[in-house]
């Protein structure tokens, strides 16, 4: 059994018309099935509106399927009793660094998740310190969140996810609003976490980021357009150089 199993997933958004009636809206995800293995690094790419962010929100039950099923470690996201268990195993980091930090002080924000899980205070302290050290923000733990750069805020958000000790983290365009330095720091973090065995799902429209995964899923109009190893989807610079050398030598 795969860690995350997606079967015939369809998500439709209904719109409320001005007279208050429900209008069937767009189909954001159109019948996709996928298995994501424990410990793998999968990137999902596609244009805006391809359904990639909708897919991300289905993985921890933030959105529920219109039809089909998503299960995490055998638990169906439709099962209300399992929802908090699923969310504690599948952490999530969002695009906007500002709008996912709840508390003014860095360490208090990182503690937010574990506090919701009802973990004892001393254990929370330990987890928060470890998480902040891991993302290199420990020395900033007492700073106000609004004093940090975008890249630093995003690392605090990652620490907030790690402190819940998840098995999997879904990154929903985590670098889209960062400058190149912030982007690099966040990508480095993501690779390190995956190397430690955390199942990693990265939603991105930067191809150089997508190419660092073990597997790339390309989405278009709610469907899977391509799914394979980076070498099957892209040609690397090395491949291209080798290919051209072959042409030259011919």
């Amino acid at each position: 059994m795969a860690f995350i199993e997606i079967r015939d997933l369809t998500v439709e958004f209904t719109r409320i018309a001005e007279d208050g009636s429900e209008v069937p809206g767009t189909r954001a995800i159109d019948g996709i099935s996928l298995d994501i293995e424990q410990g793998s690094f999968v990137s999902v790419t596609g244009m805006n509106g391809s359904g990639k962010s909708t897919l991300a929100k289905c993985l921890n039950g933030l959105l529920l399927p219109t039809s089909g099923n998503v299960s995490v470690d055998g638990m169906n996201t439709r099962d209300d009793d399992k929802l908090w268990d699923i969310r504690s195993r599948v952490g999530m980091v969002f695009q906007n660094p500002d709008n996912q930090i709840v508390s003014s002080i860095v360490e208090d924000d990182v503690a937010f998740g574990p506090e919701n899980l009802g973990i004892p205070p001393l254990e929370i302290r330990k987890r928060v310190d470890e998480a902040l050290k891991q993302v290199g923000m420990y020395e900033h733990r007492l700073k106000g969140a609004h004093m940090l750069s975008g890249g630093q805020k995003q690392r605090v958000a990652i620490a907030g996810a790690i402190a819940m000790r998840p098995e999997c983290i879904v990154f929903d365009e985590p670098t889209a609003m960062l400058d190149p330095m912030g982007r690099e720091a966040v990508m480095k973090m993501i690779l390190e976490l995956n190397a430690e065995g955390i199942t990693t799902i990265l939603i991105t429209h930067f191809m150089n980021e997508a190419a660092q995964a073990d597997r790339i899923i390309v989405m278009q109009k709610g469907r899977i357009l391509a799914d394979g190893a980076p070498s099957e989807i892209f040609m690397t610079a090395e491949d291209m150089a080798a290919e051209l050398k072959r042409i030259k030598d011919r």
Binding site: A237, A241, L244, K248
Partner: peptide, 22 residues
């Protein structure tokens, strides 16, 4: 200064290494 060059430069560099003369 923490700045890069257009990414196509990296690809061209690899090709230049593989194919002397290009």
């Amino acid at each position: 200064m923490g700045l890069g060059v257009p990414p196509v430069r990296d690809i061209l560099k690899k090709i230049k290494e593989a194919v002397p003369g290009f």
